[in-house]
Amino acid sequence: MVRNIRIDVDVDIDVGAIVLKGAAMSVDVDRRGPVMVVTINRPEAANALDAPTMSGLGHAFEQAEKDDEVRAVVLTGAGERVFCAGMDLKAFLSGTVADIDGPGIGIFTRRVFPKPIIGAINGTAVGGGFELALACDLLVAAESARFGLPEVKRGLIAAGGGTRLPQRIPLPLALELGLTGAPVSAARLGEMGLVNRVVPVAEVLPVALELADQIAANGPLAVQVTKAMMVGELTAADWDGIAATVAPVFGSEDAKEGARAFAEKRPPNWVGR
């Protein structure tokens, strides 16, 4: 049985002296038996992460965690071109990115989410989009998908999980992605061991659901403990320490200049502060 649920939560976003009311997030939730499919549905904005969308993802994963009938979660994006383009830079410039209602994406990016997450990466995943992919346990990616951590090109840091990349691939390869900001193909990430399956875009969701169904058919307690023990073998992130380290960067003149330059389609003028 498939149940379709649209999570639309109204939030008030303060932009200077203007209050925008009723900014509805775009996150769809489908129940396919024991599998929950969570879809970022902002194709007109490259599925970028603004505060309402991050709130929607948080509420969806909170729902999945509390529902004992959900055995696995599939995370994907709407359309066939972009999984998630990362942080919405317009929202960043307006200062509304932090106006998140509920747990936000941290419910599965900043902790070990108890249930398996399969990323159905239907297209480009860069910046925060790549970090969402890294929060997934298994990845099925479209042949056309591109991945990257371009934060350094905007004077920012991939502090939402991107710096944990060395836990998933060899350090020199992680440093290449993190320090150059250059994109790589799904096939290349498959060679690095990060992507489980590389398939035509039309097969991304079906293959991800097939993996999810295989997992959901197993003992739920055994699955959850196996995941916890395997992930526990990796070093846990010190999020408080990370937050203290990156805060000056996100509040810097360079961070704002990087976003402005992107919006204005020009090279940034870095000042180093």
Rank of each mutant, 00 (worst) to 15 (best):
A182T: 10
F92Q: 06
A48T: 01
M36N: 03
M230P: 00
L165E: 07
S94R: 15
A135N: 06
E233Y: 04
A237I: 06
A237W: 01
L138S: 10
P220W: 03
A208M: 02
T124Q: 11
T39D: 04
P34G: 06
P52G: 07
V152S: 00
A135G: 15
P114M: 14
V152C: 11
V70F: 02
F113A: 05
P34H: 14
I117N: 04
A45E: 12
M1D: 01
V15A: 12
G16Y: 12
I121F: 02
A182P: 01
R42T: 07
R81C: 01
E44V: 13
T226E: 09
L189K: 05
R168D: 09
K265R: 14
D10H: 13
V74P: 03
F61C: 00
R197N: 12
I100M: 00
T180E: 09
K256L: 10
P200H: 08
W239I: 14
N122W: 01
F92E: 07
G129K: 05
N122E: 12
L221M: 08
L211F: 02
G104P: 02
R266C: 09
M229H: 00
P43T: 09
M36V: 13
R154L: 15
F262D: 03
L175G: 00
A208S: 13
A208R: 00
A187F: 12
K265D: 15
L149H: 03
M1E: 14
A120P: 07
N196K: 15
G272L: 11
P200R: 11
L205T: 02
F250I: 13
P248S: 08
M54E: 13
G77W: 09
I117K: 11
E44C: 08
G102L: 10
A237K: 01
P103W: 05
D88N: 15
T124D: 04
A17T: 08
G58S: 10
A182I: 07
F92D: 01
D8F: 15
V82I: 15
G193A: 12
S94F: 14
V74G: 03
L177C: 05
A236P: 03
D8P: 10
E80I: 07
A236V: 15
V184T: 11
V70Y: 01
E257D: 03
E143A: 10
G258R: 01
I5G: 05
F130W: 06
E257C: 15
V29A: 02
I5Y: 13
A228N: 05
V37Q: 10
L132A: 13
R260Y: 14
P103H: 08
G106I: 14
A202V: 15
I18T: 13
W270Q: 03
A91C: 09
P220T: 12
D67K: 13
A72G: 06
G102I: 15
T53Q: 07
M1K: 09
K90A: 10
D240K: 12
C84Q: 04
V271M: 02
L177Y: 05
V11R: 04
G123H: 08
A216F: 08
V184Y: 05
I5C: 08
V184Q: 10
P52R: 11
G86T: 06
G79R: 10
A236H: 09
F61Q: 03
V126D: 01
E203P: 04
A72H: 09
R6L: 05
A263N: 11
D213N: 14
L173D: 04
